[in-house]
Design a protein around this nucleic acid. Sequence first.
RNA 1: GGCGCCGUACCCAAGUGGUUAAGGGAGCAGUCUGCAAAACUGCGAUGCAGCGGUUCGACCCCGCUCGGCGCCU
Length: 333
Amino acid sequence: MMAIPAKATCRLSETQVRFKPVVVMVGPTAVGKSRVAVEVAKAFETEVLTADSRQVYRGMDVGTDKPVPEERQAVPHRLIDLVDPDESFNAGLYRRQAVDEIERLYRDRRLPLVVGGTGLYVRTLLKGLCDAPPADLTVRAALRQEAKDQGYDCLYARLVDVDPAAAARLHPRDESKVIRALEVHQLSGRRMSEFQQEHGFAKRPFSALIIGLNRERGALYRRIEERIDWQLAHGLIEETKQLLAQGYQRDSAAMKGLGYRQVAEHLAGEYDVAEMVRRFKRDTRHFSKRQMTWFRKEPGIQWLTIKESESVQHTAALVIGQVDRFLTTLRED
RNA sequence: GGCGCCGUACCCAAGUGGUUAAGGGAGCAGUCUGCAAAACUGCGAUGCAGCGGUUCGACCCCGCUCGGCGCCU
């Protein structure tokens, strides 16, 4: 077991703050990010900024694997419980709030520690979004209705006409992204592809150290199953029942999340408990694969493969060491 | 020991003497610029248990062998 460095740098120097450093921990679901993050946050006397598109919903606790009260008491966690499950939320809204939290920490000369598995949110935070107008639910609903009335093929044909470059980049059947591109054009009169080209993920407002946590696939899948068994034994079904009773619709973004979806389908009588558990686990395995597909091609991630027998403290010590080295590179010379 | 049924991919499974051996599940690989735990896309048999035979041509018909199941003694 590796010793934790005697005294980690807790407060950033004025110089370091000017670099706008941010440490990011990413990785597939159930890899053990949150536990490690708590230890790292303690070492640097800072907070955990979550990058998780599901933990933003209030009342969805067991199923989103939110940090337990003891953890939240030991280390403040931000960007959790931001909206109700029927409110819309997205990467743009996330970015605005995350940037605010980071600025607040800089004023206190503390190191921002971002932790989460939502790749889009992390990328959006570190590289921004293009200047296209934000989501407009009214326009979107109208386009969706149009697809229903006149057939979806019409919409894709229109995108090919209006913004051929965007259409070429999207699969013709990827309805949600085709609608987004049309929405942008309708709202701004400009092409989505132009906004994207102008932006090009070129801006880098922060100096980021990105650490990717991973495990051997078999071990990761075992942890996923164990966590799901735990969630089901600790109130996920009751939590889902309560959300449904409060009127949250099964087709809302929040209720389409892993676990809630399968439990709700089971409660609606679509299949039995065994089938619900099977699907929940399978879909979560698929999700973790997709996360890895995303992170693998994201540049600049320093990967750390956690060994099966490795303690949280050991992993945390490795991360802390990397962060220390990262901070010493932030000097003006 | 006798009789009968069966053997097609990791699993389930359709199939016809002659296009390229359906389909489903699981798995794997990937896409992504304001719903991202979402949405969307792509991919497995050069071979039908094995070996012979019949035939212009066999996964399909015949024989033997192996394996599984059932019944009888």
